[in-house]
Structure formats: structure tokens, C-alpha cells
Design a protein around this nucleic acid. Structure first.
Lengths: 181, 181
DNA sequence: CAGTATTGGTCCATTAATGAACAAATTCTG
DNA sequence: CAGAATTTGTTCATTAATGGACCAATACTG
């Protein structure tokens, strides 16, 4: 991975933060490019040096987080579900503004489904229908079951503004996964 | 005032924030240029595009705030001491990290005296020894008296991490000034 | 509907920031 | 103290960001 000029990182970072900010204030479609560049304190043209348009920016932002979550999955491969989930909830906590916007408010329609698909991919590696607790069940059914449940709980957590500390969420969610996979 | 390229503002802003951050962590003399540029996320050479050295940066930072305070004095010329002081304490509040560092911890030796001199200048316009309450007193004595008192109280406020809300500080400090000028 | 205003997207010459290299000065360390 | 290591300050070619201009597309408005 060749080193990236810090100006590029700064511009992109500012734009990502700006879009998260703005999306928590108004509908995505109502955000203008001018607003975006103003908020990011960046020239309007700079946006087009990095992204096709605001949809591309949002796409890339979402994709980055999905990729990061995938990396976390790999690094948590050794752990049990509680430990693995803790790593995730720490990541949620650390990127609170993004996930909160994406799961609790205006951003919902863009991210939710992407997140669900991703969870499908991940749980597919975990589920075993040839033996153990899920023997005889349909693989797609059980995957869909846990993935939906997972998204639902995380959604609940953000919508209700962290009703429990993230490590409690991890523990309980981990326990529930353990019970089903 | 010709418009300044936003890149310049961003670089300078990052550097100012970085030095305030670092000064609250270690002695000013122990801060290296490299640390400064790292913290500001700016190339080391960029510092020299704007400042002679770190002392120059600190100087300019202090001077900017003094200038801003002077502007506030002008805009508060119509108000009584309580109202004028409120404008000041709002500015303190809004630039808390700077003033706190400069008056409550490591930065003290650099700013305190500059602040005192500035207050002398300002109070000189307010004091009248030919009539009123201070008739017959030595002008320098009364100016020094209120300026020192003012610095002392503000210092106390930051050192003790805002023991009272800023508007209470304004009200009480304003009352005390009223009584003495 | 026509006319106007705003927004989107592109282009370009200019400017600031970058990072790497370098020698000089300073600080560490044995 | 001498040698090593770090820090400083400068130079420079390259790259990214800027802002302004421009026109097309879209959204308002009477």
C-alpha cells in the first residue's frame, strides 16, 4: 500500500464528516454540492477530484465501513461470539456519528440493506446445518434469521441512543448468537 | 481586507490548535517542530511558510486574541461594566482551551503579562481621577489595581475550572469594576 | 408557460502544501 | 569530552487544492 498524500486524506476526511453532519440535519437528496463543500471547508471542485457525485461519496463511505467491519471479523476469528461482538460494538462506539446517522435517522435506507447483506456473507461461514444445534435446518433460513436479528438489535441500540453500554450490548448479543449458531 | 486562501487558514488553524494541545501536555520548550507538524497533520516545512519558529507561532496566537479582545472592548463601549464583562467571559468560554492553557497551566508565563499590559491600556481610557469616586487618587495606582484584580480573578476562574458559570463571573466581576472605576 | 435563479459538472491558471533531501545546529550518551 | 542521534531550518520538484469562469440542467416563480 503506497503512501497517500495527506492532503488527499484531509480532503476526503472533511467531506465524509461533512456528509454525515448534513445527513443528520436534512434528507440526503436535499443536500447540495455547495453545502457539502462549504461544510467540509473545501472548494466545490475538490469534491469532483475524489468522487463522481454525492452518491459516490456516500457509497464509498459506506463501503469503507463495511470493509473495516470485514477486517474486524477476520481479526476476531479466534474469539467466541461475545468477544467478537465486543470488537464490533467498540467499532460502533468509535464511529458513533456514522452508524447512528445510518441506522437511526435519515441515512437508514442507504445503509441498512448493505449491512444486512454483509451480515449474510459473514454468518454464512459460521453456520453449520450438518451437525450441532442447527442440524436439519435450512441454511438460508437460519442465516437470514440471525442476520435480521443482529441488524434489528443494533438498530434498536442506535435509535434509542445507547440504552445500555456497548459492552453490555456485546455480551447479550454475543450470548444470543451463541445460542443460535 | 483581501480574501485569504482557505488552505492558509486551515494550515494556520491546525497549527494553532496543535500548539494549544501540546502545551497542555508538556512544557513549551520541550515541544519539537516535528511534534507540532505531526499533531497539526501538516508537513514540517509548512510551519515555516507561516511562522519563523514556534515562538513566532505562539506570539501570533497570543497577539490575535489580544486584538480580538480589543475589538470586543470597542463593541462593548456603550455597555456598562457588567454587560461588557459578559461579552468578555463569553469570549473566554468560547476559546476555553486557549485561555485555560494560558492562564491555568504551562502557558502562564507567556500570556499573563501580555494580558496585564493590555488591561492597563484598556482601563486607562476608563479611569478618571479628576472627578467621581477616584478623585485625588494616582491614575497609575488605580489602573494597576483593577487590572491586577481582573487578571487575578480570571486566572482563578480558569485554574479552578469554571467554579461558576461564565455569566455569573461576568456579573460579579462587572459589579466589582463598577465599584472601582 | 416563459423567464429567472439555483445547482451541477467541467476546465484551467495560479497558489499552497507536500515530502524528501540536505547541512548546520543542538542535544544525548557513554 | 567525542561521537551519535536528533532537531532545525532551507531548498526544490511535484502534486493537490483553489476559486473563478463557464454552460447545461434543473428548480423555482409569477
Amino acid at each position: 500500500m503506497t503512501k497517500v498524500d495527506r492532503r488527499i486524506l484531509k480532503s476526503q476526511q472533511a467531506l465524509k464528516k461533512a456528509i454525515i453532519d448534513l445527513m443528520s440535519e436534512k434528507k440526503f437528496d436535499d443536500i447540495t454540492i455547495q453545502e457539502l463543500s462549504d461544510r467540509a471547508n473545501v472548494s466545490r471542485g475538490t469534491i469532483y477530484l475524489h468522487y463522481m457525485d454525492k452518491y459516490d461519496l456516500l457509497d464509498k463511505l459506506i463501503e469503507e465501513h463495511i470493509i473495516e467491519l470485514r477486517v474486524l471479523c477476520r481479526s476476531a476469528a479466534e474469539l467466541d461470539f461475545i468477544g467478537a461482538t465486543l470488537i464490533w460494538t467498540e467499532y460502533f462506539e468509535h464511529n458513533y456519528s456514522f452508524f447512528s446517522m445510518m441506522l437511526a435517522s435519515k441515512g437508514a435506507p442507504y445503509f441498512r440493506n448493505r449491512f444486512l447483506i454483509f451480515l449474510h456473507e459473514e454468518f454464512r461461514n459460521e453456520v453449520n446445518v450438518t451437525q450441532g444445534i442447527n442440524q436439519g435446518l435450512d441454511e438460508d433460513v437460519i442465516i437470514r434469521f440471525v442476520a435480521s436479528a443482529y441488524v434489528g438489535v443494533v438498530e434498536w441500540w442506535f435509535t434509542n441512543e445507547k440504552p445500555v453500554p456497548h459492552h453490555v450490548l456485546a455480551e447479550q448479543l454475543g450470548t444470543l448468537l451463541e445460542r443460535n449458531i
